[in-house]
Design a binder for these strands. Sequence first.
RNA 1: GGCGGUGUAGCUCAGUUGGCUAGAGCAGUGGAAUCAUAAUCCACGAGUCCGGGGUUCAAGUCCCUGCACCGCUACCA
Length: 685
Amino acid sequence: MSKKEQILVTSALPYANGPLHIGHLAGAYLPADIFTRYHRLKGSDIVFICGSDEHGVAITIRAEQDGVRPQEIIDRYHELNKGSFERFGMSFDNYSRTSLPIHHETGRDFFLDIYNKGILKKKQEKQFYDEQAGMFLPDRYVEGTCPKCNEEGARGDQCEKCGSDLNQTDLINPISKVSGKRPVLRETSHWYFPLGDFQDKLKNYLDQRPWWKENVRNYCYGWIKQGLQDRAVTRDLNWGIKVPVDGADGKVIYVWFEAVLGYISSTREWAQKIGQPQRWKDYWQNENCKLIHFIGKDNIVFHAVMFPIFLMAKAGYTLPQDVPANEFLNLEGRKISTSRNYAIWLEDYLAHFPPDPLRYCLAAIAPETKDADFSWKDFQTRNNSELVGILGNFVNRSLTFAHKYFDGQVPAQGRLDGLDKKMLQLLAKAPERIGACIEKYTVRQALREVMDVAREANKYFNDKEPWRSVKNNKQECGTTINICVQVSRALAIFMAPFLPHSAVKLWHLLNQDGDIHKQQWASAGTVFVADGHPLNPPEILFSKIEDDVITAEIDKLKSNSSSESETKKTIAVPAATDKISFADFQKVDLRVATILQAEKVAKTDKLLQLQVQIGDEKRQIIAGMAEHTAPEDLPGKTVVVVANLKPAKIRGLESQGMLLAAESEDGKLSLLTVEKEIESGAKIR
RNA sequence: GGCGGUGUAGCUCAGUUGGCUAGAGCAGUGGAAUCAUAAUCCACGAGUCCGGGGUUCAAGUCCCUGCACCGCUACCA
């Protein structure tokens, strides 16, 4: 029996705490969309799933920063990102969200299932519980008197005064920071997933998938070689999927465990929407279904190590057939940085350009084997010389010719000469060639193959010189134009996965029936358009982009990223509840100091070992700043240090204080110093 | 520091299990043509295949080593 190929494609769930930029598109979404659109044309039974990842501490932090509830954050970015995707033509069958009940249900089911199987390890400990607030208190949410130095206000993890490391249960007179009441001790537990127990199974699973990209496979083997550790699957937080077990109040399932299950929830939601609620099982509980995760390289461990393990633990589920992880996209030679606003946001792009040129450019430079670089100049060149000059121009010269000399109808295909046959043969092989590339996830190569068809077509047009034959052999001229129309139709289909909007437009110019996205891929290789078929009047398929537009974008990028670093102080102003008393401030003893010596700590990237003079005292300070400051620049500098910080051992070296420095969003450091010369040891207040 | 990846013409990249004078596209130079959004077509590339060792009759392709860049991870009081 020849059943259709069954495929489930997912793209990484974008985190709903910020907008999307071109890097997102290039790595996980565009390649998946091209792959999916191609398979639909090919007739595969394929479903494309995505959605917003809406849990986790980054969302609650973002909400606190903005002074709103987490729900507002996720609503805002879910809608925004969903809209951006739509406008770029991401053809998800469903775009869900992990905050929906259906996902909470999936998360609970999975958790309970492996919990009931006894897979999870419970690590029990006594922890304070706030009866009024109805929650367990993490270490720092408890304060009390330090048992060692009798100082009040010691935190549950350590005493600021004497520097002792504490357990919260050591505190005398503990107080909950949430309600101000005395908490009670209760037995609590967190659950850990013993990934190591599945190590051999995972290795076996990887061994059976030799077709994976080498970097992904090796990366996984690397993890296995190091030994997989137990990993907590619960945490104390109010935002997320509640742990469905008695005695787990105030605990949620850790996002890293639950987010990937969003693929399943989203598929279930899709099945409900199409009125076949059980249909999701055809994909998720079917060993013949190919489950494919498109992600960026930062996500490999979750999709290629942990998720397969969950599915093995749950049993009866389809395991990922492939994880074609892509590398990263840089921008004008630098890393994209959301915090510094160094990015091209999808919405900004769409305000100035149509979606297809970006899809084209990103597909052409897709970071398949290594990090790629997007530059506006390259974008312009690709648009102007490839989309406009080669592809658009071929279609345009063919169709205008048909209108000018053949009344807008497809001329009859007469006798074929060598050039005609060569062109048609090339066309016949193209669907297979292009398709093979897409199936191997080499989108770049696939697009090149498409463009090669257009290049050959231009050459064919030139060689046939229809502008000459129209005068002395109109029949031969007609054959040429007929073939050019056939090629144009094929190009429309070839374009469809990559340039869906332009493909529709071309389909209309050719006056073809039906939805181009429902055509047969293989039909592109055949002669399809009948003699005498009427064509619509030609229109420009792609427009040129002028220099000044590109220059403006480059300038905008520069000014955005630089001005943002000046205005970023608006970002992290603490909420009123976090403010400290003057007494608290006075506890910190800040002093002027002079650096005497500085050298790198061996075998570390960031650590510097500093000797400083504070008044008449010499101290050693270990500072994590080696990446931004050369040690030889430091001796003699006047700096500000925290003099009464408890000493700590870092990499076996004692650090007796802390150097103050301002840190920018991108991690650049600037040391604090004093305006005028002043004696070492001077107090700062 | 540990693990993984990448380093090939000005730019973006191909180079299969090692094998003829290392290949494309774009940009550049020269020419042809004029149907087309001055778009197209043809011709032209003496590149230390990151450096240094090694294996082999033969290495961009395998092994060792060094360097640079990227990601994960540890240290950042």
